[in-house]
């Protein structure tokens, strides 16, 4: 059992959980993820690591209540436990293999979309600790959905905010912001983008055009997260890769995003059915066309 020691609301339906998991905290590196199960009935869900504290033996997750399990998670309080937290899974960011001297040679730009801010924070914080802070574009639909701005400011060289509705920062999505930085003459050696797949796709299309090597972190469907099920498979440069063990980070210019987005829809109907069942309990009478089976 893994105790929740801190629970904090970061935005509409966005919650931070700091969880006691000493072994994971000790081994975690930026770029890795976890598999979490709420309780004995729970599904195994992959979540990114936002932060870890080796001294306190805790790890931090940020979850947006959109699916059945993440919605159910909101009812957990401080002192409650997750039945299972497994990790850290996947390969750490390749940046962690470089020395501070090598890192200083590179001008890095992170692009964080929506909840992707959480795993980007882990990477920025690590770089900051190495004495090599990077720049970051943090984007969201609107101001309220921009999370952890103060924390991000603290670990970033320059933080650029962007909102689709222009409520704060650059008016436009992260791709617009990236183009703007480029037009202003900012040079970057590497872009690391984490967020919704569609956003990563467009960012990688742009960086390809601009000739900037890019890395994207793939949040695919998973069951075990250790290479067993193959549900997370995707095409990278025409080759089948497993996001859980070969990734989650890949060369963004070589990922087949269209196929990955298609595969992400695989269990959408079933998941909606479970969500409806949770919301309406015994009063659900069908008619939605989803529960006909």
């Amino acid at each position: 059992m893994f105790e929740i020691v801190v629970k904090k609301t970061l935005g509409p339906k966005i919650t931070l959980y700091e969880v006691k998991a000493p072994f994971i905290a000790k081994s975690a590196l930026p770029g890795q993820f976890l598999i979490v199960r709420i309780d004995e009935e729970g599904e195994r869900i992959p979540l990114t690591i936002c932060d870890y504290d080796k001294e306190k033996g805790t790890i931090t997750l940020v979850v947006q209540a959109v699916g059945a399990e993440s919605t159910r998670m909101e009812s957990l309080q401080e002192g409650d436990c997750f039945a299972d937290v497994v990790g850290p899974l996947g390969r750490p960011s390749e940046l962690t293999e470089l020395s501070p001297e090598e890192l200083k040679q590179k001008k890095l730009l992170f692009v964080a979309g929506g909840l992707g801010t959480a795993p980007v924070y882990a990477q920025l914080k690590w770089l900051h600790e190495q004495g090599c802070p990077a720049d970051c574009i943090q984007g969201a639909r609107t101001k309220d959905l921009l999370i952890m701005i103060d924390e991000m400011e603290e670990v970033t060289d320059t933080l650029y905010l962007a909102t689709d509705d222009g409520s704060v920062g650059i008016h436009g999505n992260v791709t617009v912001a990236l183009q703007q930085l480029h037009d202003e003459g900012k040079h970057y050696d590497l872009v690391i983008v984490i967020g919704p797949m569609i956003m990563m796709k467009f960012v990688c299309e742009l960086t390809k055009k601009l000739g900037i090597p890019s890395i994207a972190s793939m949040n695919t469907i998973m069951v075990d997260g250790t290479g067993m099920c193959g549900a997370c498979r995707l095409l990278v440069d025409g080759e089948v890769k497993f996001a859980c063990v070969d990734g989650p980070e890949f060369n963004g210019h070589l990922i087949d995003f269209d196929q990955a987005m298609q595969r992400a829809k695989l269990y959408k109907d079933q998941e909606t059915r479970i969500l409806l069942r949770d919301q309406e309990k015994e009063t659900h009478h069908g008619g939605c066309g989803l529960c006909s089976e």
Partner: peptide
Amino acid sequence: AGLPKFMGIPGEQALGVFSANEYLTR
């Protein structure tokens, strides 16, 4: 030995193609 093999034939990435491991684990 938990890593599933695939055939490498066209269409294997389609929606509705599973490894036996995934199907049975679920």
